[in-house]
């Protein structure tokens, strides 16, 4: 597929050369530009911490896709962040298995500890809390994903311990 490095004149670019190269490399693995959208967005998010609209536009430019198409994908998945997020990202699963095993209580506990609602970031920018759909680890429900790591069979005590480890 065609990959371009076209730059809009007069606009500072958000994505670094390294990220751009990374996306171009990823693109080699796929037949269609659409297929590259998700890994490309991850690459952009890895650099910037989140996906500002401008980053989405740049990814779209690189892949020669309409920005709306890339943006719509970014907005669909909970693991792409379209607003700045905290240093640590806590995603609590609230789908069926976890819900049956007390996810609601876990969520409530985390909310109280961090004093924020799902979808928010603490004032010190340290923690972001998300409510997510099934993480695919029902065997250890209730489950949360924290900074990409899975934590299962959660109890309030276990949550306290983890949060302490993260410097709360």
């Amino acid at each position: 597929m065609g990959v371009t490095q076209a730059q809009q004149p007069g606009k500072a670019r958000l994505l670094s050369e390294a990220t751009r190269e990374n996306i171009s490399r990823i693109a080699l693995n796929y037949d269609s530009a659409q297929s590259v959208v998700m890994p490309a967005l991850y690459a952009a998010q890895e650099q910037l911490g989140y996906l500002p609209d401008q980053a989405i536009v740049e990814v779209a430019e690189i892949l020669q896709l309409p920005p709306s198409e890339v943006g719509a994908v970014a907005s669909f998945y909970t693991m792409y962040f379209r607003r700045p997020v905290g240093q640590h990202i806590i995603s609590v699963c609230e789908t069926l298995s976890c819900a049956l095993r007390g996810a609601e209580g876990i969520m409530e506990h985390v909310r109280r500890k961090l004093n924020i609602k799902a979808g928010e970031t603490t004032a010190d920018g340290k923690f972001s809390l998300n409510s997510v759909e099934c993480l695919g680890a029902c065997d250890m429900a209730p489950v949360a994903m924290i900074d990409g790591e899975y934590y299962g069979n959660l109890t309030e005590e276990k949550v306290d311990e983890i949060l302490m480890g993260l410097g709360l």
């Binding site: 989405i56 309409p66 709306s68 198409e69 943006g71 719509a72 669909f76 909970t78």
Partner: peptide
């Protein structure tokens, strides 16, 4: 395009 997902989804142009 459709933005967001599930019960939150809505129709919109690029921001």
């Amino acid at each position: 395009k459709i933005w967001d997902r599930g019960h939150g989804e809505y129709i919109d142009t690029f921001p």
